[in-house]
Nucleic acid binder design. Structure first.
Length: 213
DNA sequence: CACGCGATTGCCT
DNA sequence: GGCAATCGCGTGC
């Protein structure tokens, strides 16, 4: 149940929150890697000094101005970050995927990341791109059509949200730190950031939440 | 064409 | 909590 283009056409803040609990899927010739999205940040097309699109189109950010549901991948500090374009073509708004909870493909993730600790596989924007082998080659692909990369509704999670969404300032930026446009599943083990940034300990997983249902 | 930095990560104290 | 590594891109000369 891949998310359709209409899903991404909503207001960026609403799309950001709605992406929590959705399933990011990457297909390889010999297997699948997937994970539930547990942390995102919204970057708005107007009034957002931290948004890459804020100063107009450049070679780096041109995909941000593409159609909703397209992927915007860029490199920062020699690592990759993945965003999904929102709203409408020409605007330059997107949601950064900051963390996922691994579902399938643990062994491949460990190999691609070069680490063994399960909690460290996908708890950050650069880490999850490594674990899913997402790099600039995928910049500009259509997540609503691409055969090997998409975001889908998880039927196990569809009935109500068995978790609490928390919001905070965005991480790692200089500009517009006061905007509370980071959203994450409260207490999830795979959310990024330092212990002191969190209201409650990160010890739960979505797997637990689903079992409770 | 040189320079500086960042929506990061991992190692150090 | 601090800080260095790392590199593609934006900016300005």
């Amino acid at each position: 149940m891949r998310l359709p283009k209409e899903f991404y056409q909503g207001p960026t803040l609403a799309v950001a929150k709605a992406l929590l609990g959705k399933r990011l899927v990457r297909r390889f010739p010999d297997g699948i890697v997937s994970g539930w999205i547990v942390e995102v940040e919204a970057y708005l097309w107007r009034g957002d000094k931290a948004c890459h699109a804020n100063r107009g189109m450049t070679k780096r950010n041109e995909m941000m101005f593409g159609q909703p549901g397209f992927l915007y991948v860029y490199a920062i500090h020699a690592k990759h970050c993945m965003n999904v374009v929102t709203e409408m073509e020409g605007r330059g708004a997107a949601v950064l995927i900051r963390a996922v909870e691994p579902i399938e493909g643990f062994e491949r993730m460990r190999h691609l990341r070069g680490v063994d600790k399960h909690d460290q596989l996908t708890n950050g924007p650069g880490k999850l791109c490594s674990a899913f082998e997402i790099d600039r080659r995928l910049n500009g692909v259509d997540l609503t059509e691409h055969p090997d990369l998409w975001i889908e509704e998880d039927p196990n999670i569809l009935q109500g949200h068995p978790w609490k969404i928390h919001r905070s300032g965005r991480i790692g930026i200089r500009m517009a730190k006061e905007k509370l446009w980071r959203f994450f599943i409260d207490g999830n083990r795979f959310v990024s950031g330092r212990v002191s940034d969190h209201r409650i300990p990160r010890q739960r997983s979505l797997l637990d939440a689903i079992r409770l249902d």
